[in-house]
Structure formats: structure tokens, C-alpha cells
Simulated scan of single mutants.
Amino acid sequence: MSHGSAKTPPARPASLDRRHVLGLAASGLAASALAGLGTAADAQATATPAVDLTGVTLRLADYKGGDSLVLKAAGRDRTPYRIALAEFASGNLIVEAINAGAIDLGSMSETPPVFGAAAGARISVVAVIKDDVNWQVVLVPKGSSIQSVAELKGKRVGYVRATTTHYYLAKMLAKVGLSFSDITPVALTPAEGQSAFVQGSLDAWAIYGYNVPFAINDGARVLITSSGYLSGNSLYAANPATLQDARHTAAIADLFHRLRQAYVWREANLERWAEIRSRAIGVPTAVDYEILTKASRRRDLFPVTDADIASAQNVADVFRDLKVLPRPIDVAPLFDRRFNDGLARALS
């Protein structure tokens, strides 16, 4: 995401138009429409694939300033297969693109796969990213007298519908015996929320990412963080058809190994990484560095566990209780543990 100034909300990263992506998938032209990343030969230390990956193209979905950038920054992007990179603005669009056959692999929060499952999307969750939750919060304006979640009763509270903010706000309210019917919930995009918050139209705002430090800089106060309410899990999902091919599966395993190496570099070079990423997404380096240094945990990639499946199921159940999902969803069939052994070895 990018940011113009402290007064302007972060803009969404550029993405492929939904109809364009689906149309490309239908016509079989998706791979040629994506920009390439990587070379045919790899001179770097990484896992040695068991099969020849020459000629393989892995269609990877990513966000601006995301994993493809950290691979490059860490010097882990020169792969023995081609990476065709497509930039997306949200996880739900990545799920749609995977389902349409336009993308082989991409990451998102726990929420998009749940809604994808409700719509019958064909995706396989193959790995779990553990990441920060400190920058997913409920903010109150400067000078607000509100000191607890219980005091949100009857107040106008902004959030982003069908996202992590919707989920953790519901969990926070439930913990103090409240529900969405006890507040005046206002579903807004991040940009709309920032405008409403600045104009004084909201008593509180559940929001994430770069909106948070910029709002704090303007005098907002964090009422509560999502720590203890949000798992911090993001999910790498693959196209099930891609997983039927041994060479593409080997390429994904190799990419995961490289990502784990890149995350280690990222943690050891936070200041340098903040410089690189801030240029890519258009925020001041100091803001990005603050987010990185105050993270609740360092970003890393893990095998799928029963606890991860239970966490995603809880998300599905909460959205069902909120009547946002049309029916109960069993998330377990979404998960595929074929990469677990390789990821576990990398962690040992």
C-alpha cells in the first residue's frame, strides 16, 4: 500500500481488474499477461529441487511491498523456474484468481479463504505465515473519554466489512457482553474510514496497517490492539490443479524455502528493509521502521497444524454468527499438508 502524506489514507495497491483476471483465465492467456520475475539459473544457496524446473512458470500473486520484494532484497529471487508476478490489492481477489485458474499461489489473511469456501472456490491452503498483530487496533480520536471496549456501547464504530477488523471487533465486543447490535457499526473502506475518523464522524475505528501510525501521529489513541483476539495467521493458498503437477509442486516447495531465508534476512536487516519497502509503497521510512520494530512477532512461514485449522474455523464460525456468511462452513477440506515435512525440516 502507498501513502501520500500523514493526512491522506494509504491507497490500495494496484491490482489486476477482476474481470480482466477471470477473462485471462478463461482464455488461457493469464501467464503471458503477468510480469516475469526470476531467471533460469540460480547461483544462490537454496534447497536443491529433486526435479528439473527449467521451463516451469509459477504464477505468483503478491501485494505491493510484499514477499516478492523481500525475496529480491534478500537476494533469493534468482530461481531455476520463472516467477510470473501479479500484484493484487486484497486477498479476496487473490482467492478469486486462484479459483479462476489465473494464479498458482498467493497469500491472504484467514478471512478470504472462508468466504471463498462459502462460494465454492477451489483453493488449497498449503502453508501458514505467522506475523504481527500490533497494528490491527481500535482507535479513538484525540480527546476521547472512551477508555474501554464496554464504553463503545451506543457509539459509532467504523470497521471494514468481512475483514480481520470485522472479526476482531466482534470478538472484543463479545468479551464484554456486547454485540454489533449494541453499537452503531459503520462499514467503510479504509479510505472512507480515515476520512470519517478525521472529520469526527466516528467515536472509534477498527483498522489496520499504515492507517494506524498516521492516525496516532495526528493525535488518535489506541483503545485496544488485536493481540489475544487475532491469530496473526496469514495463509498461503495454491491452485489445486497446480498441485497435481510434480514440477510445479517442487517449485512451490523451493519458493517456500527461499521465503524462509528471505524472512531471516529481513529480521536481521530491518532498517535496510524499511528503506526498500517504504520506497516501494510510498510511506516515510521512519513510519515503516516503527511498524517493523514494534511488531508482536517476526514474520515466518510454518507448516499447517490442527491449531491453524481450528483458528480458521473460528473465523468462519464468527462470521456465520454475524450472519455475514450464508451458511456454516467447514474449513478443514481447504487445508493441504503436503509441504509440512519440508517446512518442518527448515525449522529444525
Rank of each mutant, 00 (worst) to 15 (best):
M172P: 06
G158S: 00
V138W: 01
L58G: 00
T48A: 15
G158M: 00
D17N: 12
D321T: 12
I103Y: 11
S227G: 10
V137Y: 04
H248S: 09
D52V: 08
R337E: 13
Y159N: 00
W273F: 14
L235T: 11
I183G: 05
L230N: 10
A97G: 04
R221M: 12
I252L: 06
N217K: 14
V315C: 07
A251L: 07
R18H: 11
K130M: 03
E87F: 08
V212M: 00
G193Y: 09
G116D: 05
G219D: 00
V160Y: 09
K171I: 08
D67L: 06
I98V: 15
G36A: 15
G116Y: 09
V157S: 06
Y210S: 13
I252P: 07
G219L: 01
A251E: 08
T305Y: 08
N134W: 01
A43F: 13
Q199W: 03
G342K: 08
A97N: 05
P185F: 14
D203P: 04
V70T: 09
L37Y: 07
F256K: 08
G200W: 07
A220W: 01
L152Y: 01
V287L: 12
A250D: 10
R299G: 03
V222L: 01
R279G: 15
H20L: 14
D218K: 06
A174P: 02
A150N: 00
L22E: 13
A262N: 06
S148T: 15
A89Y: 03
V51L: 15
P10E: 00
R338M: 02
Q136I: 00
A344Y: 03
L60W: 13
A102Q: 06
S109V: 01
F256A: 05
A118S: 10
F302R: 13
G65F: 12
T242G: 10
A241M: 10
D182I: 01
S226V: 00
L188H: 03
L69G: 06
M1Q: 05
N314R: 14
R18Q: 09
E110H: 04
Y63C: 09
E275T: 14
R18V: 15
D62I: 03
L93D: 14
V51D: 09
